[in-house]
Design a binder for these strands. Structure first.
Lengths: 201, 201
DNA sequence: AGCGAATTCAAACGTATGTTTGAATTATCA
DNA sequence: TGATAATTCAAACATACGTTTGAATTCGCT
């Protein structure tokens, strides 16, 4: 495999698993079996590498999301939530991708990586707007949009945290209650809860 | 003010505002106007300082929480949610404390500070168990406890994220919709949504 | 095969980190 | 006041970081 892709793969795992700031280029390149100078040769800087990892995670999500909608003309909120849930949960490698994606998002928010928010809104502007449109619905008043915005943050926080901590939580429920959450159960617990967050009361 | 408290105050703000790993002892001590060696003199190490900050944040939350319940004998889930919301939102310094607390929690989870989770469950064991008991209710079956556990993670994620990002989100809605969320509105949006997360479907 | 570009490599650069030291200063209290 | 303990301080320690360098190696193509 190409050096560039080896670096991307290892960086995605390590950034997600141990945090962005906490992961050194030396640790990444050592695990990937490449020279440390390769990072600056292929990506220019650590910041650019972070963006490249983010780009791949985002592209995979939006690809799977629009694929799951398979060109439906008008998309209901519930359809959108199901498609998003599947894009995160039902991937070839199970929840591993979703966990990394959510861990990365969480780390990005917690570690003041503002450049990543800018990156999302410029490089994936169209996908981002479409996706939000599906969730928001149409013909909302200003104050309804305002409330929806806040509920969306509740939802985003709930998803980021529970998915990114999936392994820990799964281990806890297994030892505590002898029960574990299957992938399809996760989806059928998640979608109604998400709807409730966006529409309660 | 004592050097030890100056360090604690500045560390709490900077850890929350810029992340734990990203905040150096030099930056803290410089802002606090004390010598850098004072950290290791008063706290022993950076890790101990992190725990001390966490301790103070937790103590303040639980104090305000049980104060808000003011010795009620049996506590309903809704009462508990109101008390928790007030403990975070209605503090003398407004949302500043809650924001820092949630930012710190979020950073702790994202940055693999496992020692902090251990710290909570040992140093605040009794408060922690009581608080969870109020939210969980009684007489739940194994599978109900299991589902409650997951819903609680949704709720925790929603709260951590929306409160910790309050300033950013408030600025966005202000410029986007010309609307801002008052503290009491936040509580009356939050409690029903929290109930919905725990009880939907 | 042989040339030019692309890539890899060991080594070093400058800077920043948490921690430690031992002397200087300040506070405590008989 | 004077001795003892607590605290502060400038300086250095060892280590780790992202980045850069220039030579060595590999690759792509005629």
């Amino acid at each position: 495999m190409k050096t560039k892709d080896k670096i991307l793969d290892v960086a995605e795992v390590m950034f997600s698993e141990h945090g962005i700031t906490e992961t050194s280029l030396r640790a990444i390149t050592q695990k990937a079996g490449v020279n440390i100078a390769a990072v600056n040769y292929h990506f220019g800087s650590k910041k650019n590498l972070i963006q490249a990892v983010f780009h791949r995670l985002l592209a995979r999500f939006f690809d799977a999301y629009f694929e799951a909608l398979s060109g439906a003309t008008s998309v209901s909120r519930e359809q959108a939530l199901h498609a998003a849930a599947r894009a995160i949960i039902n991937q070839p490698d199970g929840l591993d991708y979703g966990r990394r994606f959510m861990k990365f998002l969480q780390a990005a928010y917690a570690q003041q990586q503002a450049h990543l928010r800018r990156y999302l809104q410029t490089e994936f502007h169209d996908e981002y707007v479409l996706f939000l449109g599906h969730l928001a619905g149409h013909g909302l008043s200003k104050s309804q949009q305002f409330e929806f915005f806040w509920r969306l943050q509740f939802l985003l926080g709930a998803v980021m945290f529970s998915i990114s901590e999936y392994r820990t939580l799964d281990a806890i429920t297994d030892s505590e209650y002898g029960l574990r959450l299957a992938q399809d159960s996760l989806e059928s617990l998640f979608v109604p809860t998400a709807l409730a967050i966006l529409e309660s009361k």
